[in-house]
């Protein structure tokens, strides 16, 4: 090796040096971007350990003088407590996602693999709903839900989700079309009902798609803010994000940044863990959403 590299002509040497400097530049740039993406988290965590006044100090200090855990304890003293808000969020997730996903996949199965009269019409019919913004539907829904006494309960956030998720349905239809119909025919020949074919053949075959979409839906509900803030602010059913925003609203006169940062840290940790564990699903389904359109 070394005799060869010694035999490099000056021109080759120059090219090699140029490549090395450009590699170094790329590394510096990439690490700088990493710094930019990680820094707000870093700042969130550090602030959460600061004293309330220390967080408002004029002079610049990165690390807290003493690491205080007070803000984390204070999260428990909120009304309702942060733990309760997290439980509320988890309850909504569990109430919506299993049934909602099943309903969605079942409808996708009918569209992808079954004889269905006026299939294109129904597909376009459901698809048209995707271009109606939630903000346009919010007011009548709010009125009806408040008249039947659902405001302040998680029902307005649960019941609509049980009827399925249309964008998820399109993802499933695409995926199911790639599953060979021979599998289904075989089930039919054996006399299995459509429901049985769906549960025993289709659901297991589309597992990767389900996993990807469930992770996304989980994230969506966890991070949702608009509807929970309208329906649950001030009730004991408040979700994590709505409570966090509420704490922020209440502290406009007397800022307590360590408290809201501690809340942000606690609400972000589960999501970051899920993201790291399910990383490949994120990339897959995101990439698919961009490519299939």
């Amino acid at each position: 090796m070394s005799p060869l590299s010694k035999a490099l002509t000056p021109a080759q040497k120059a090219r090699k040096a140029k490549r090395i400097t450009s590699n170094i530049l790329v590394w510096i740039l990439a690490l700088f971007v990493v710094f930019l993406t990680v820094f707000p988290y870093f700042w969130m965590v550090l602030t959460s350990f600061k004293d309330r006044l220390e967080a408002m100090a004029i002079e610049f200090r990165v690390f807290p003088e003493v690491f205080h855990f007070d803000s984390y304890y204070a999260l428990g003293d909120q009304d309702p407590s942060f733990a309760r808000a997290m439980l509320n969020t988890v309850i909504i997730e569990i109430a919506v996602i299993p049934i909602g996903t099943f309903v969605t996949a079942l409808a996708a199965f009918a569209f992808a693999k079954m004889r269905l009269p006026h299939k294109t019409f129904w597909l376009l019919f459901l698809m048209s709903g995707m271009m109606v913004p939630y903000a346009a539907l919010m007011l009548p829904q709010y009125r009806v839900f408040s008249q039947i006494g659902w405001v302040g309960t998680p029902l307005p956030l649960i019941i609509p989700g049980l009827f399925g998720n249309i964008s998820m349905m399109f993802f499933f239809i695409q995926y199911m079309k790639s599953i060979p119909s021979a599998l289904i025919e075989a089930g039919r020949v054996d006399g299995a009902s459509w429901m049985r074919i769906f549960v025993q053949i289709m659901l297991p075959s589309i597992f990767p798609a389900i996993a990807a979409q469930v992770v996304f839906w989980f994230l969506g509900i966890w991070n949702d803010y608009f509807a929970p803030s309208i329906y649950l602010s001030g009730s004991s059913w408040v979700t994590l994000q709505a409570l966090l925003a509420l704490i922020n609203d209440n502290m406009q006169r007397m800022p307590d940044y360590p408290l809201v940062m501690a809340g942000s840290v606690i609400s972000s940790i589960p999501i970051i863990i899920i993201y790291i564990v399910c990383q490949k699903y994120f990339v897959q389904s995101l990439a698919a959403s961009g490519m299939k359109e």
Partner: peptide
Amino acid sequence: LFYLPAVTSAVAINLVFRY
């Protein structure tokens, strides 16, 4: 790491940037 900001809730992002 580049994708990390996308998973955080809008509320938490807004709060930390507000600060």
